[in-house]
């Protein structure tokens, strides 16, 4: 078959030439008038009348719309999700981290008549500038307080900005990844559209009902 190999190869490249591209445009892609109108949520004529400037831009090919990257819910991202109420400051995460980048300092906290003594978190720093997102800290957490996040856009020009402090961790969006957290997968939780704000729902055990609590704390005593 000498002589046929090259044309057959070119046929393959020709086939691929007309195939839809697999390149994902990120962070945004260029759209025409139709795409810009769809993004604004109106039909093209409406868009043309209401936003003549943007329409001209879109016709000239300068309009862009943001693109969300397709991710798996198990994605190990860098915005850690943390539930303060679930944490007992046992520092399992800090001990299990291969690089030792989690710093925890605790102080004696309140004494509750029902729950006993508890510790308060004084420092909880995660240096994600050195983190490799192996997820071992999340795997080690016995109370499901620490979860991997699903976001990844946290680049910075300053190295110190990459240290997630306690306040930042508490205030971060509660969009936990389902990495090592099968309870989220069982309920079909999608971190890209919903949040888990209540710390009761983040655990791997079922949330106790009021009757359960009454039986445990009132009837059995």
């Amino acid at each position: 078959m000498i002589g046929l190999g090259l044309p057959r190869g070119f046929l393959v490249t020709l086939k691929n030439f007309v195939r839809p591209a697999v390149t994902e445009q990120y962070p945004d892609r260029h759209v025409g008038l139709l795409g810009a109108a769809k993004e604004a949520g109106m039909n093209p004529f409406q868009f043309l009348i209401k936003n003549p400037g943007n329409s001209l831009k879109a016709i000239a090919g300068l309009a862009t719309v943001p693109v969300a990257v397709k991710q798996s819910p198990r994605f190990r991202g860098n915005e850690f999700t943390f539930y303060e109420d679930r944490c007992t400051v046992c520092a399992s995460c800090a001990k299990y981290c291969p690089l030792g980048i989690i710093e925890i300092v605790s102080v004696p906290g309140k004494i509750d008549a029902q729950e006993g003594e508890s510790y308060k978190i004084e420092v909880f720093d995660i240096d994600i500038g050195r983190c490799m997102f192996c997820g071992l800290c999340v795997e080690a957490c016995p109370y499901d307080a620490l979860h991997m996040g699903t976001k990844f856009e946290r680049s910075s020009y300053i190295r110190n900005d990459l240290v997630i402090s306690k306040d930042e961790l508490f205030a971060a969006e509660k969009r936990p990844s389902s990495f090592y957290r099968p309870q989220f997968e069982e309920t079909g939780f999608d971190p890209f559209s919903e949040e888990v704000t209540d710390y009761h729902d983040a655990g791997r055990h079922e949330r106790p009902t009021d009757e359960d609590l009454k039986r445990k704390w009132v009837d059995e005593r």
């Binding site: 198990r74 192996c134 990495f179």
Partner: peptide, 28 residues
């Protein structure tokens, strides 16, 4: 690599295996 992201959450540096098996079952 997309399949790896579904199964273990990472694309290149998987760390999927643990002594005795893997850390988590594959999702549906």
């Amino acid at each position: 690599l997309d399949l790896f992201e579904i199964i273990c959450g990472a694309r290149i540096t998987n760390s999927y295996l643990r002594p005795g098996g893997v850390f988590m079952d594959a999702p549906q």
